[in-house]
C-alpha cells in the first residue's frame, strides 16, 4: 500500500472507532455521575468538570448484590449453553443441507406436523404432556405406515432452508404468548432450561444459513478424496470440514452468543424470579422516575465486559493465518 493509502485506511478506521467508542465513553462516565450531573446539561471529563461518584456502582453491587448476581449467572449459563447447542445443531444441519439431498415427501411432513399440532393442542387443553407426545408419536407412525407411501411430491433442500430461515420472520410479539403457554404446560416456566431451549431454537436458523455459506467455500475435492480413502461422513465433517471453517464457526458463535446474551422479550415472559436475565434488569431501570441513567450505565458496562473478552479471545480464530495454514497443510 502507498503511504497515502495507509493514512487513509487509518483515518477511516480511526474515524469509525471514534464513532463506536464515544457512546461507550459516555456510558462509562455516566456510571460515575450523580443524577444532578446528568440532568443539568452534559459534563464530559471526570475530575475536570464533575467529581465522579461511586454511588451507582455501590447501589448495584452492595445494595442489590444478589439481585445483580443472580441474573448475571443466569445470563452466562443461558447464553453459553444455548449458543453451544445452536452451533452444534446448526452446523451439522447446515452441512447436511449442503452435501446431502433431502426429499422428504410432502404428505409425510404434513402428517408429522399434524400430529405435532394435535399434541400441542392437546397439551394446551390440559392433557399431560407425556401422554400427548406419546399419543402423537403413535399416531404419526401409524399414519406413515398406512397412508405415508401414497405420497409422491417431495420438498427439497431449498425448501427446507427457506423454511428454517422463515422461522425468524415472525416478530416475537406474535409468538411469545403461545411459547409461554407451552412452557407453562410442561412446568418449565421460570427455569433456565426453558430459556435455553427457546434461544437455541431462535438462533438455529442463523447458524444453519451462515455455516452453509462458509462450508460452500471449502473445496469439495478434499472431502471427496477423504471419502475415497474410506472416511465416514462424520469423520470428514469432524476432521476436515470443521477445522477448515474455524473462522466461520468463531464468527457465528460470537453472533448467536450476543443474540442470546441480549435477548429481552422472550426472557421477560419465560422468567420471573429465578431465571431472570440481565437485559430485564437494564430495562427495569426505566421506572416511574424516568430512566436511571447511572444504574443503567453500570449494568450495561458489567454486561458488555465478558462479551468483549470473548470477542478478543475469538478474534484470534477469525484471523486469516489459521485458515491459510490449514489449507496449505
Amino acid at each position: 500500500m502507498t503511504p497515502a493509502g495507509v493514512l487513509l485506511t487509518y483515518v477511516v478506521l480511526g474515524g469509525w472507532a471514534l464513532v463506536v467508542l464515544f457512546p461507550l465513553y459516555w456510558i462509562l462516565t455516566t456510571s460515575f455521575k450523580l443524577p444532578v450531573h446528568v440532568y443539568d446539561g452534559p459534563v464530559f471529563i471526570p475530575y475536570v468538570d464533575f467529581t465522579p461518584s461511586g454511588d451507582a456502582w455501590r447501589y448495584i453491587f452492595v445494595d442489590l448484590r444478589n439481585d445483580t448476581l443472580r441474573p448475571y449467572v443466569n445470563t452466562v449459563v443461558v447464553a453459553l449453553t444455548s449458543s453451544v447447542l445452536a452451533l452444534g445443531l446448526g452446523t451439522t444441519a447446515g452441512y447436511g443441507l449442503l452435501r446431502f439431498r433431502y426429499e422428504p415427501r410432502l404428505g409425510v411432513v404434513g402428517m408429522f406436523l399434524g400430529s405435532l399440532a394435535l399434541a400441542a393442542v392437546a397439551i394446551t387443553m390440559g392433557v399431560p404432556w407425556q401422554i400427548a407426545v406419546a399419543a402423537a408419536l403413535g399416531l404419526f407412525i401409524l399414519a406413515r405406515q398406512t397412508l405415508g407411501r401414497r405420497f409422491v411430491r417431495a420438498v427439497g433442500n431449498d425448501d427446507i432452508s427457506f423454511w428454517m430461515i422463515s422461522q425468524r420472520i415472525l416478530p416475537p410479539v406474535a409468538v411469545v404468548i403461545p411459547i409461554y403457554v407451552m412452557f407453562q404446560r410442561v412446568g418449565l416456566l421460570d427455569t433456565r432450561l426453558a430459556v435455553i431451549i427457546t434461544y437455541t431454537a431462535v438462533n438455529l436458523p442463523i447458524v444453519v444459513w451462515l455455516m452453509r455459506d462458509y462450508f460452500r467455500n471449502i473445496s469439495i475435492e478434499l472431502e471427496e478424496s477423504a471419502a475415497i480413502d474410506g472416511a465416514s461422513p462424520y469423520r470428514i465433517f469432524r476432521s476436515i470440514v470443521l477445522p477448515l471453517s474455524t473462522p466461520g464457526l468463531a464468527a457465528t458463535f460470537l453472533l448467536v452468543l450476543v443474540f442470546a446474551w441480549n435477548e429481552y422479550l422472550l426472557a421477560l415472559f419465560l422468567t420471573s424470579a429465578n431465571a431472570q436475565t440481565l437485559p430485564l434488569l437494564i430495562a427495569a431501570q426505566n421506572a416511574t422516575r424516568g430512566p436511571q441513567w447511572w444504574y443503567m450505565s453500570v449494568l450495561i458496562l458489567i454486561m458488555i465486559t465478558p462479551v468483549i473478552l470473548m470477542a478478543i479471545a475469538l478474534e484470534r480464530y477469525i484471523a486469516k493465518g489459521l485458515l491459510v495454514g490449514a489449507l496449505k497443510g
Binding site: L268, F269, S272, L280, N286, A287, T288
Partner: peptide, 11 residues
C-alpha cells in the same frame, strides 16, 4: 418479585 414497569400489567 419484580419486573420492568412497562411490562407489569401484562405479566
Amino acid at each position: 418479585v419484580t419486573v420492568p414497569f412497562s411490562d407489569l400489567y401484562q405479566k
